[in-house]
């Protein structure tokens, strides 16, 4: 009986000691914020467009991290974002959920300035302050800051905002990958060239 009591007391003491250590460690090495949310957020395109159904990129990141949201709800990010998220979270790559939109070429908002009435509604809607203007003054979009989220299109009372694809210039032009003709054998060269 005495031995059992001793054992229980010893175990209790150990439990208390380790509990204290763990409790201390939890305070001493506390991590501020949620690192996984930040990591996911870093992979998202930060358009803050809300197409995923969340009010911004960070809430979607939180949804993925905590709420088990699927990783395929971000049309602006497209395949590459899904791929990156899959790599980070070690989950299956999913095709983009068409319900939330399709992956489109990057666009920027363009205000047809002659039609702008200066209502400032688009300025309030822009999540990144990319629209410049004042009440009753013409507004314009700072193209370099625009993320192409198209949140400004809907509030415009005169529908003078277009989403236009960015033009290709010598500065942003990219070399293409070579056509993959390398599965052909030498005697098929004529066919490949034709």
């Amino acid at each position: 009986m005495g031995m059992i009591l001793t054992a229980i007391l010893v175990l209790l003491a150990l439990a208390l000691i380790f509990g204290a250590i763990l409790g201390y460690a939890a305070i001493r090495f506390k991590v501020d914020g949620d690192p996984i949310v930040d990591q996911i957020n870093a992979l998202l395109p930060q358009t803050q467009c809300g197409q995923c159904g969340h009010p911004g990129c960070k809430p979607y990141a939180q949804g993925i991290a905590n709420g088990g949201e699927p990783i395929n709800k971000c049309p602006p990010g497209g395949e590459s974002t899904i791929q990156a998220l899959a790599d980070l979270l070690d989950v299956e790559v999913l095709p983009l959920d068409a319900e939330h939109g399709e992956e489109k070429a990057r666009t920027v908002a363009y205000i047809r300035e002659a039609e702008c009435i200066g209502c400032t509604k688009c300025i309030q809607a822009c999540p990144v302050d990319a629209i410049l203007g004042a009440a009753k003054q013409m507004h314009t979009v700072i193209i370099d800051e625009c993320t192409g989220c198209d949140l400004c299109v809907e509030p415009c009372p005169v529908d003078c905002i277009d989403m236009v694809p960015l033009p290709t210039t010598p500065q942003n032009w990219k070399w293409d990958y070579p056509l993959s003709g390398e599965t052909l054998i030498a005697t098929d060269a004529q066919r490949g060239a034709a």
Binding site: L44, C57, E145
Partner: peptide
């Protein structure tokens, strides 16, 4: 892609500042 990441960071910063 780097440019895009950079831009996303920039946008995030602007968004957060806003």
């Amino acid at each position: 892609l780097d440019l895009q990441t950079h831009k996303a960071d920039h946008s995030k910063q602007r968004f957060e500042h806003r």
